[in-house]
Every structure is written in C-alpha cells, then in structure tokens.
Design a protein around this nucleic acid. Sequence first.
DNA 1: CGAGTCGTACGATAGGCATCGTAGTACGGC
DNA 2: GCCGTACTACGATGCCTATCGTACGACTCG
Lengths: 119, 119
Amino acid sequence: MTTAAPVPSSRDLPHPACGEIRLEGVLHALSDPVRLRIVRELAAAGAALSCSQFDVPVTKSTSTHHFRVLRESGVIRQVYEGTAKMNALRRDDLDDLFPGLLDSLLAAATHQADRRNGT
Amino acid sequence: MTTAAPVPSSRDLPHPACGEIRLEGVLHALSDPVRLRIVRELAAAGAALSCSQFDVPVTKSTSTHHFRVLRESGVIRQVYEGTAKMNALRRDDLDDLFPGLLDSLLAAATHQADRRNGT
DNA sequence: CGAGTCGTACGATAGGCATCGTAGTACGGC
DNA sequence: GCCGTACTACGATGCCTATCGTACGACTCG
C-alpha cells in the first residue's frame, strides 16, 4: 500500500489549502518549461517520485526552486521520507477545483511534444 | 454586416502561425490577472471587441502591452478597423492545437470567480 | 484643414524570477 | 560517532516584465 505507512519524518512543508489555490498561480507555475516537464513526468509516473529521479536540465538548487514554486502554487504535494523528498501531483484537489483542466493541459503538452518530434 | 467588409486599413500586425504557438507561451499569457480577464470578457462576448471596450484596471499604454502579449502568444487575433483595433479569440486555432484546453481554462476561471464571489 | 478619438512607441522604474555556486542541515548506514 | 547522500538556504547576477507618463501617428467627422 502507498498511503498507510507515512512516518512523515518530523519535517513538514507548507502547502496552500484547496481554497487558496489560484488559477493564475497554477498557470504561471506551468508556464515554465522545466516545471511543465516535471509535472508531465509526475503524471506519467502516476505515483510520487523523489526530486532526484527527475530528468531536468538544471542544477540541484534551481530544481529545488522549481519544486517549491510547484508546491506553493498548489500543483504538487511534497513530503519528506528519510533523506528523500517525495513529490506527488495534487490531482484530486486540482480536479475538484478546476474540473478537466489538468487533463487538458497534460494532453496539450503531449500533443505539442508529439508534433515537435515529427509525429 | 460585420464579417464581410474588411478593408483592412493598410496597417497589419504580426501574428504567430498555428505551428508557432507554444503551450508555455499561452499559459504564461494567461497567468496574468489582467490578461486572463481580457480573455474571459472576449469569450463571454463571443465576438471581436475593440481595445477600449474592455474593463481593465490599468492605463492605456499598459493595456496595449497586454494585448500585444496575447497576440504574440497566439491567444488573440488583432485587426485594425478604422481607428479601432478589433480583438478576437483564436478559438479555432487553439481548439485545433490544444483540444478542450481553452474551454477548461475558461470554465476554471469562471469557477474560481464564482467561488470568490461567495456563490 | 482642424479637432478629437483610438491606439502606439519609447523611456524609465521597480519588482520578480530563473539560474548558479557554495555552504550547510537532516537523515540513514556502517 | 562518522561519512555519504539528499536536499536547502542564502547571496549574486542578469534578464524579463508590469506599470506608468508623455509624445506621437492614424483615422473620422465637421
């Protein structure tokens, strides 16, 4: 099981409540190519991933920055698990707030990537 | 009639071709509250509007800037008609490139506005 | 032609932000 | 206790951008 053995490791991170998530913030978060890529990998994985498992073309400190932007805008949820920091899409919250938006965005990103890959 | 007598008035404006429209650019354009508001008004109107018909809380020169960002990102199309500059959503192009995205975005914006208005 | 309206161009300004490097903290294993 | 790993915090830097005011160009109407 994935949701029943947290042991959340004392360190906690601030997340916006559902009511605090702003559409503009989500769009801004996803308008950066690096962050869009992170979200796409996260959606493709369908599960939480540690920061180091992502394939992004920036240094660690920059990627820390991007993960924070994603968390503070409400796109992902971050939880420490030992030395690793696990990242998960807030799909349920986003689907509740903005029905269909996340799927459209992911589909659009895939569509665009396919087109640029020459079909 | 409104759609059959162009006489485009010599002044032409550069627009990105469909293939040049980037998802990141569209999201960035819509991540600004002023521009999101413009797009919502445009979608609600369902027709082209002149710049001065929008209710935005910025000066003219700033609104010129926002309209240009929207045009250069591929979200709207701008055409001169006499002294007025008509703005129209590129709904067909966007729907073709990113199916369902625009509708999800507009629905999300409306949903959020309703929630903040206290239903 | 002259005046008024609509929108632009340009410069200035202030703030935001993506990026990096370095130094440091938290945790797990030996 | 010590070391390695994972990630963070902080400061610096350079770019982008949202905002404005002012001066100007394009067009319409009298």
